[in-house]
Amino acid sequence: MIRLGLRENQTAFRPGETIAGAVLWEYEKVPAGAEVRLVWFTRGKGTEDGGIAATVAFAGPPAADTREFSFDAPNGPYSFSGTLIAVLWAVEFVVMPGGEFQRIEIVIAPDAQEIHLPRIEQPKAGGLQARRS
């Protein structure tokens, strides 16, 4: 049995903010390893991309334990959602072997709100003033 929780159930963060939480696991046998990972990944029409931004590994984990963790929210990529692509962030707690996991999706963006991209078909008229040199 595993559990993952974020401090004060916060799921939206600004870049640089601390993402903190705790994990709990209970097994009959000693697990080979346990890690909390901060990951980003894409979702949408394109083939999935992603990366592991940071990892907190619990070396030599006992059969049952509770641990705390914290990450600094990185500068980017921001959480956003467009017509074709979305970038999501998540905190994952993974126990090996077997890969049992829990995931909490979070938002990392300047105003702690997912950015929504508009869709534009035609150029907007106007623009900024041009001047000859």
Binding site: L84, L117, R119, I120, A125, G126, G127, L128
Partner: peptide, 14 residues
């Protein structure tokens, strides 16, 4: 590859 434009601002049109 699919493309979707979300900014198209004309800076100069002369």
């Amino acid at each position: 590859t699919d493309r979707s434009v979300f900014v198209n601002t004309v800076l100069l049109d002369t």
